[in-house]
Amino acid sequence: MSSSPTNIPPNDPRINQGHQEHRTTGSRPSTSTSSVSTSTSPTTILLAILSVLSAVLIAYLVNCSTTVSTDEDASTVSRFFPLTRLFSSRQSVVRPVANSVDHQLKSSIANLGTEGSGFKMRTPVYFISHGGPNVMYERDHPAYAKLQELGREITTKVKPRAVVVFSAHWQAGRDTIQVNTAEITDLIYDFYGFPSHYYKEKFPNVGSKEIAQKVMDALRDAGIKAEGVKRGLDHGVWAGFKCAFDPETNPLKVPIVQVSLFGTEDPAQHYKLGQALSKLRDENILIIGSGMAVHNLRDMHFTFGDPRPLPYTVSFDEALKDAATAPVEKREQAMVDLLKRPDARQAHPFFDHILPVHIAAGAAGDDKGRRLWTLKSGSMSWAQFRFGEPATNGSL
């Protein structure tokens, strides 16, 4: 846009405004180019400033268009700055193609895992009873449907940026916790005597060095020894997760970092382990404990074909509910006392499957526990717990 006064008609009032001094001296204002160029009107100055600002804005928008990293970002910039459509190119939002399926999966899940992470939400904590690998195939089993419900709650309401999970099937040292730092993780088929196709099952997943480091830092801040290792996911994670997060109908799409238990049966030690990681919940990281509410494989042959629960299954399952849902100030002691009950060793000949709920309760902080569902069957209980409420990130 030109600001030259030669484009202004001689009788334009802007000339008189720009040369007021001629009126005060009684002389006629000149309309020549040389005369007008010797002074500048406010309007001319304003037009010049607008021209400069327009140039700066265009340069800024061109720069924005070359730094867009995703299609979603591109649409957002275009919506608020429509001129970017003139300068942006499709090439600017295309990511390099990965060299393998694993790396494609890693890239896509990692990117999806960061969506919505700007919201400062405190995630709830879950304990799931994962069952055996056969739960993936027994779709008429009530536990299958309940795991699906829980999975949909997590993907549609909680929407975490990552999941940190403790499985009954991984114990480390007596005073040391191990954290899986692998980003591409295989599956561990840690079960025996099942049909051959069980050992060909797949569950797409990726890990995260960033989240693993956050876990180790939090543990060390709490005075707990922690070390990174590379390991696959055992079936205490992937079998239950495949029911909850079906890869085709309800994919999780965020990194999964598995963390070990201690190599002890100390409930207080595991409760404090959960407490050490509670602050991760403020970063939209979801903590899940995976075990069984009652787990006695030795007595399964007594109940084969008979779904009626054994007496200790009923009594311990209810005692677990009372402890996990106790007032916050009494919960830690109640969870410790739970494993001192006379029926505790009947319900759990080994405490590895119950200790993940102690970790979950410790990570819950001031949030109350709630039993979402239970099924007492033979020498097993499938109780599922949640601590806190699943505030909906997407609704903010």
Rank of each mutant, 00 (worst) to 15 (best):
V36L: 13
D140T: 15
I184A: 14
N284Q: 13
F302K: 15
E149H: 10
R122A: 05
I354P: 02
D343Y: 00
T392A: 09
N134P: 01
F316L: 06
M300H: 08
H197C: 00
A323M: 06
I109H: 03
H301A: 09
P327Y: 08
A212N: 08
A363F: 02
D12A: 14
S315R: 15
D317F: 02
W373A: 05
N250H: 03
A276S: 15
S260N: 07
I287Q: 04
T24N: 03
D217T: 13
R341T: 03
R95G: 03
G207C: 11
W238E: 06
L187P: 06
G132H: 07
L50K: 06
S37V: 01
G173I: 08
E265G: 10
G291A: 08
Y199A: 07
M335H: 13
S92H: 02
N205R: 06
L297D: 02
G291F: 09
D266F: 05
E153F: 03
N7Q: 11
P133Y: 07
W170G: 12
E329R: 04
G18I: 00
V62I: 15
I45T: 10
V254Y: 05
S51G: 12
R79E: 07
L297K: 00
I354E: 01
G131W: 07
G207N: 14
Y189L: 13
A239M: 08
T43A: 10
K376W: 00
G18V: 00
K340R: 13
R370Q: 12
D102I: 04
V125P: 01
N250D: 09
M292E: 11
P204I: 15
E329C: 02
Q91W: 02
F304Y: 06
D140V: 04
P124V: 09
Y312I: 02
A168E: 10
L375Q: 12
V336L: 12
G113S: 05
P349M: 06
T264V: 14
L252Q: 01
Y198S: 10
E21C: 05
L286A: 10
E115P: 00
G289F: 06
F166P: 06
Y137N: 12
H19N: 11
P124H: 08
H270P: 05
G388A: 04
G26F: 01
L338H: 08
P9N: 11
L375P: 01
L187E: 12
N99V: 05
K209T: 06
R85Q: 12
D186H: 15
P307D: 14
T123D: 05
A244W: 00
T249C: 03
T6L: 07
L105A: 08
S65H: 05
T392Y: 09
F127A: 10
F203N: 09
G113Y: 03
S315H: 10
G131Q: 07
E21Q: 09
T313M: 14
G26P: 01
S30P: 03
Y198F: 15
F80C: 03
K321I: 06
P5A: 07
L50P: 00
F387Q: 00
G26E: 09
D71S: 10
P307W: 09
L261Y: 06
P29S: 08
Q213H: 07
Y126F: 15
N393T: 15
D317N: 15
V206M: 07
I58Q: 12
W382Q: 01
R331A: 00
E183T: 09
N99F: 07
T123Y: 08
S377Y: 06
V314N: 09
L277P: 02
S39K: 08
